Amino acid sequence: MKNKQNIMIKGTKNGLSLQLNDRCSYKELLVELEEKLAELHRVDDDRPLISVSIQAGNRYLDEQQQEELKELIRQKRNLIVDHIESNVVTKAEAQQYIDEQEITSVATIVRSGQVLEVEGDLLLVGDVNPGGTVKAGGNIFIMGALRGVAHAGYTGKAESVIVASFMTPSQLRIYDCISRAPDHYDKEEHHQMECAYIDRTNQIVIDRLQVLKHLRPNITRFKGGHYNG
């Protein structure tokens, strides 16, 4: 009777999908992968570059093992690993995900020369004075005046937003986009909460707070209770 295959190779619209058996040994995977890649190489030697995704299932692959798999696949001229997916993460990765989803609430005034930085979302009850800086891996919500620098989404989240009761910043940054403060503000136009976000042209735009409901519908994390919105 033929032994169970440890690697299933399936064609997708984006290239190839390698589904790994998560119950066999890692060494067995490498042996079978080399054999199957050799067969693919003989058949598809003249084909253009093919993207490969690796589905590891409930197997945890450390960085060294991931690089070993990528290198093995890269040796075949027309194959390149696009991504590796696993259902398993380390405790450190899980904790990092929790930290990035957390909203940190701080009641203080960020004065000139001070930097307040959090990994997830920041809710600041207070002002950011000129020369002060607030940074967040996610969104920034300021229940006060923003007169200094605010940098949201610095970990790579371009969908992050900055909200302030009084939006008069010296500089706004979202992900890798930077917006300088205008030469002057009309006080009559800045008496209500406003938000800043990256628009479709990759520019930072300041707008009324009400637009967030439509632009970032997933920003709400309401759980339990009852809400008619």
Rank of each mutant, 00 (worst) to 15 (best):
K10I: 07
K10T: 09
T12D: 09
T12R: 03
T12L: 02
T12K: 10
K13N: 11
N14D: 07
N14H: 03
N14W: 06
N14G: 04
N14R: 05
G15V: 05
G15A: 10
G15E: 00
L16C: 03
L16M: 14
L16A: 00
L16I: 08
S17G: 01
S17D: 01
S17Q: 02
L18P: 00
L18I: 05
L18Q: 01
L18D: 01
Q19H: 09
Q19R: 10
L20M: 11
L20Q: 00
N21P: 03
N21I: 02
N21F: 08
N21W: 01
R23V: 02
R23I: 11
R23C: 00
C24S: 07
C24H: 02
S25V: 04
Y26P: 00
Y26R: 10
Y26C: 03
Y26W: 10
E28I: 07
L29W: 07
L29T: 02
L30N: 02
L30Q: 10
V31M: 11
V31E: 12
V31Q: 09
E32D: 01
E32Q: 15
L33H: 05
L33A: 01
L33Q: 00
E34Y: 12
E34N: 11
E34W: 05
E35T: 14
E35K: 15
K36E: 05
K36W: 07
K36D: 05
K36I: 02
L37Q: 11
L37G: 03
L37C: 06
L37F: 06
L37M: 11
L37T: 09
A38T: 11
A38K: 09
E39R: 08
E39M: 14
E39S: 10
L40F: 15
L40E: 01
L40S: 01
L40K: 05
L40H: 02
H41L: 08
H41Q: 15
R42N: 07
R42K: 15
R42M: 14
V43I: 13
V43D: 15
D44F: 15
D44R: 13
D44L: 09
D44S: 08
D45A: 14
D45G: 06
D45Q: 11
D45W: 02
D46G: 07
R47I: 08
R47A: 11
R47V: 06
P48A: 03
P48M: 03
P48D: 10
L49A: 12
L49V: 10
L49I: 13
I50Q: 12
I50L: 13
I50A: 05
S51A: 12
S51R: 12
S51N: 13
S51D: 14
